[in-house]
Amino acid sequence: MSLITLTTDYGSKDHFVASLKGVLLKYNPSAKIVDISHQVNQYDTLTASYIVKSCYNDFPENTVHLIAVDSSTNSEEPHIAIFADRHFFICPNKGFITQVFRPDQIESIVYINAASEDYDSFQAKNILSKAAIHLSNGGAIDLLGNPVEHIFEIKTQKVYFDDAHNKLTGHFIYIDHYGNMVTNIKRIDFNARRKNRDFSIDFGKTSISRIYNSYDHFNREYKKTNDASGEVFALFNSSGFLEIGLYKSNPKTRGSASTLFGLNVFDLISVQFH
């Protein structure tokens, strides 16, 4: 049985997801299709890359991951197929894959050949689905097209360490369903720089000086003195990234880290070591 995952910016109102699934099952009836997310903001390649990067490795080897976010392009900029870390990825050449893998981690990457009329509309159905069907049926990736000559890369701010001032600076990259803010600072980078020193995490006008092991760890510690609901915390999430949140927050009612602190994606966050 082959496995295909879908990540799109189509939402759930229209027919696009159903139509895409229908085509996949029509030509590979034995395929199992798993929805990763269809709630990615329109054209938001960075969010799509974070979501897929956080979970693709939980799937079996040789899973085909179809990413249809900002998926319309033209024959001058064909879609691409990638094999990396024992998984296949099919997506537009708009920077997604460079946010998930370094170039040296990519084993194979090719353009996806398509007829000119396939670019007219619904390219995920006309082009990406055909590549997914081919790979999910055991087809070789190099039969899809020629090797890619240039991988488009999104220029994003990198994590920076200022040795002179013992300061690690990153930025927020994702807002989750609870309004918690995920940064691009990884646990491995934090641990390498900390060297058992005290620290403060600074964002906006707020500063905190402790990182908890988990949500429950924060709740247990805080309950010793008060109810933890609505209190700010920092932890490294299951994907290994530093996250700032409010315990049991709800963006629609009591608020969340993103709304109450006025935080947005690309805002700066720093860790000062003392």
Rank of each mutant, 00 (worst) to 15 (best):
A132T: 02
K205Q: 14
R86E: 15
L168T: 01
S108C: 09
T169C: 04
L20K: 12
D267S: 01
N62M: 08
I112P: 08
G139Y: 13
I133V: 12
Q42T: 13
V34G: 00
A164Q: 15
Q272E: 12
T183A: 02
D163C: 03
V265A: 00
T183Y: 02
S19T: 14
I173D: 01
N74H: 13
F241D: 15
S239E: 08
P92A: 13
V23T: 15
V64T: 10
F152W: 07
N264D: 12
I269T: 04
N191Y: 03
G11A: 04
N264A: 07
H79T: 05
K94I: 00
F152P: 00
E231V: 01
Q157V: 03
D120N: 09
D104M: 02
S256V: 03
G230L: 07
L3R: 14
H38I: 01
S270Y: 03
H165D: 13
K205P: 02
G11E: 08
P29V: 03
I154P: 00
D176V: 01
I36N: 09
H274N: 14
T98Q: 12
V271S: 03
I244K: 00
N196Q: 14
N196W: 02
F199Q: 10
F190M: 01
F59Y: 15
I175D: 04
N146T: 13
K223M: 10
S209W: 02
T7F: 06
F172K: 06
L260T: 10
H65V: 06
I4D: 12
L168K: 02
R210L: 05
T45G: 00
I188T: 14
S207C: 09
N126H: 14
Y50I: 06
A234G: 05
G245S: 10
G138C: 05
F172T: 01
S12N: 12
E76S: 11
K205Y: 13
D120P: 00
K125Y: 03
N191T: 10
T63I: 05
L263G: 02
T98V: 01
S129E: 10
F172D: 04
S54T: 04
G204M: 05
F241E: 15
Y160P: 00
S258Y: 01
A81Y: 11
V159M: 11
E231S: 13
Q123F: 01
D120R: 06
N264C: 05
